[in-house]
């Protein structure tokens, strides 16, 4: 009788208590039957590690991608060469673009896992508080970045689709010419709405990274009181670098500095 959470005869018990009652006491020992990676990914802590690992891959990509793109300031030939170089890595051991495709597959996988775990953790967290606070919450530590991860993430996700349509596949870009990376980018960014999309998306990305690149240390348990302060510095620095670097390109083009 006294286990409020185990009582099933409490007619019309609200959702709030049902969540707890589904897993009534006593707690059974965890079964260890599934392959351990499946099990691991089945847990929220596991998913968070996966998010962090895929997050690191994505961070790496974004950084390298930005460095490559910054060649836009060195002129068309540099950027185009870079685009060409990307396709040539691994030659002659590997056929042309094979390495690039390996990279792409890795990237697609990382995105897929990152998004899937983001989605399922978000659902889990929504279920964990079926009745919201009815009065105003006063946050102390949770900041704008940490509370908007799923929104900034979605913005970045949608942006990537647009971005691919714009600069890789080309159907969102009327002036698209396959292979002339520099010209495509300049044409694209010269259009004000597109430039705005780029700028907004990259600010969102910066915010996402601001929390993510600190949070991933916690998720992976990389913690040492002596270095903890550097995790913050790293996150601020990285987010700032990516935001400034990426926002500068559409900004410079749309304002006509780079043509």
């Amino acid at each position: 009788m006294p286990e409020l959470t185990t009582e099933d005869d409490r007619a019309g018990a609200d959702d709030a208590s049902r969540l707890a009652r589904e897993v009534g006491p006593p707690v059974p020992p965890s079964p260890r039957d599934k392959p351990f990676l499946v099990r691991f990914y089945g847990s929220a802590v596991g998913k968070k590690s996966v998010m962090a690992l895929t997050g690191i891959m994505l961070l790496g990509f974004v950084l390298v991608h930005m460095i490559g793109n910054l060649k836009i300031y060195l002129g068309a030939s540099h950027l185009n060469e870079y685009g060409e170089w990307l396709r040539m890595i691994g030659e002659p051991a590997l056929p042309r673009t094979v390495f690039l495709w390996l990279l792409r597959i890795g990237l697609i996988g990382a995105f897929a896992f990152h998004i899937h775990s983001a989605y399922s953790l978000t659902r889990m967290n929504q279920r964990a508080r079926p009745v919201k606070y009815q009065s105003h919450r006063e946050y102390v530590a949770a900041n704008f970045a940490s509370r908007t991860m799923r929104w900034t993430g979605i913005i970045v996700g949608l942006f990537i689709i647009f971005h691919l349509a714009d600069l890789t596949w080309g159907f969102a870009n009327p002036d698209f010419v396959r292979g002339s990376v520099y010209a495509n980018a300049i044409h694209s960014f010269s259009r004000v709405p597109v430039a705005i999309i780029y700028i907004v998306a990259n600010i969102a990305l910066g915010i996402h990274i601001f929390h993510g690149s600190w949070s991933m240390f916690q998720s992976l348990g990389l913690n040492n009181p002596r270095f903890n302060i550097w995790r913050r510095y790293f996150a601020v620095g990285f987010a700032a670098l990516i935001t400034v670097g990426n926002v500068s390109m559409p900004l410079m083009v749309v304002t006509g500095v780079v043509k």
């Binding site: 009788m1 006294p2 286990e3 409020l4 006491p25 006593p26 707690v27």
Partner: peptide, 13 residues
């Protein structure tokens, strides 16, 4: 012991 079932616990009782 509660977990092992040898003690049955009644709270708020």
């Amino acid at each position: 012991q509660v977990h092992l079932g040898s003690v049955k616990l009644y709270r708020r009782t």
